[in-house]
Design a protein around this nucleic acid. Structure first.
Lengths: 148, 148
DNA sequence: AGTTTGTTTGGAATTGTTCCAATTAATTGA
DNA sequence: TCAATTAATTGGAACAATTCCAAACAAACT
């Protein structure tokens, strides 16, 4: 049906998204967007993303990483998933979907959409509507040799 | 502001729970346990509980409130629900159940168990087992009469 | 009782995040 | 084009929630 994204325009995807969101395509946003959107679905913390950028020689402050992730989230380009006090991930997958959380290392993983479903949504209280449903399936290492 | 004497053993419930958990029934734990367990299902933050205790003249430090909530949680007497970065509640209801989150004021409310159900649990990855499933239904004020 | 063990405490430390005012970059439009 | 305008970035300070710490204290055991 359609041509795949050409190789020679590495920023085109991010550029399109920024344009849609009405955000200026700055050097930092383009670089972060590339890290985020060119690698398929990702779950990153602000610190992680900042570290990755630094590794690649992209000079961007942590404050800007936070700003950018928050703006992307506010504009529907990403979604925030809070899994523990003081640990929240930004998810590049904004489709309706849910997550596995590996409790031992805190890693997050998408649950394929066809593998989970809510049988019944409860009645919303008066004057309220559902804005989103978050499901987190917490996983632990199967019991056997618990060394800690 | 008079003292009623509704029950002759106001601490018995908390005492039993502490005993079950192998925690010493100290003055602080008894007082906090009374606030938590004698009032039905509750969702409190550490700060809230500390404030309540202070109001009632119970002298307890914030560190102890955190210690106590964490110990209660570790021992299955309570459960922690994280709803936003920097906001987590401790829930006295440890049955299998889920929550409504009112996004405007951050309040949490139990969803009656028969009103929600997962149609299918996804396959757990190898060597992993489900430790818990958290469902949070986020509610916003229905668009129409936006007062405030 | 005295001793041991577990708990509480205030304050400092830590972590994750936001705020701020100054600087720098992107956009507009003559 | 380039000056004027507007928005974004920055480092560091501030903040909020939580944990850590070592000393003081309380409960439990013998």
């Amino acid at each position: 049906m359609r041509q795949d994204t050409p190789r020679e325009r590495p920023f085109s995807q991010t550029l399109r998204r920024l344009k849609e969101a009405g955000l200026r395509p700055t050097r930092q946003r383009l670089a972060l967007g590339k890290l985020l959107f060119d690698a398929g679905d990702r779950h990153v913390t602000a610190e992680q993303l900042h570290g990755e950028a630094s590794e690649q020689g992209i000079k961007v402050s942590l404050a800007t990483v936070y700003n950018t992730l928050n703006q992307f989230t506010a504009n529907g380009l990403m979604r925030e998933v809070v899994v523990a006090p003081g640990r929240s991930y930004f998810d590049t997958n904004v489709e309706d979907h849910h997550h596995f959380l590996y409790e031992d290392d805190g890693a997050l993983q998408d649950i394929p959409q066809d593998q989970i479903a809510l049988a019944a949504l409860p009645d919303s209280p008066a004057d309220m509507e559902v804005s989103r449903v978050d499901v987190i399936v917490r996983l632990r290492r199967a019991v056997d040799n618990q060394s800690q």
